[in-house]
């Protein structure tokens, strides 16, 4: 794990939860930390360069903005894995994609502006890959934890 300077740790702790919605956000952070705008800005730049901050921006509730999402699993022979993953990953609506153990070994989450768009994308992936594919839409959401210690669990 990369060693962080004290100011980097302090800034990170705050902005993981809340990056100020003010015209000069770094000045606001500096005020809270008793630091200077320049120093805080440089700390954030450094965290971004080191790849510790993956993204600085908004995390939205996709359902509240009208998006639909689902979980999709594919059964893919090992020898065709790379080829299939390249096809799946090429869709911008595919946000997470993992290899998992078992018969169904490729699992991805898909978002789109409508149910119909979701169905179309799945049908397209089925046609292009010829893989066995199952669609597992959520029927009820019990929990999504926004865990700041772990980062981006809310996405």
């Amino acid at each position: 794990m990369t060693k962080l300077r004290k100011i980097e740790t302090q800034v990170l702790e705050i902005i993981q939860q809340d990056f100020p919605l003010t015209p000069r956000p770094y000045e606001e952070l500096a005020r809270r930390l008793g630091s200077s705008e320049d120093e805080v800005f440089k700390a954030v730049q450094s965290l971004r360069k080191k790849g510790i901050i993956r993204r600085l921006g908004g995390s939205f509730d996709s359902r509240k903005i009208g998006y639909k999402s689902t979980l999709v699993a594919l059964s893919v022979p090992k020898t065709r894995l790379q080829e299939v993953v390249t096809i799946v990953n090429s869709y911008p609506g595919v946000t997470h994609n993992y290899e998992r153990e078992g018969k169904y070994n490729v699992w991805f989450t898909l978002i789109a502006e409508s149910e119909q768009a979701i169905e179309e994308t799945i049908a397209e992936i089925r046609n292009k890959t010829g893989a066995e594919i199952i669609n597992l839409p959520a029927t009820h959401l019990f929990k999504i934890k926004v865990d700041f210690d772990l980062g981006n669990n809310d996405e």
């Binding site: 919605l21 003010t22 993956r54 939205f60 980062g151």
Partner: peptide, 27 residues
């Protein structure tokens, strides 16, 4: 800013912030 604060108030925006890399946190 007025609109973005409103997204926050209505829950459209969960948070504005830094998304960090999972592996860095040691999980």
């Amino acid at each position: 800013l007025r609109r973005v604060r409103n997204y926050e108030k209505t829950g459209v925006l969960r948070r504005m912030g830094a998304m960090i890399a999972h592996r860095v946190a040691g999980v």
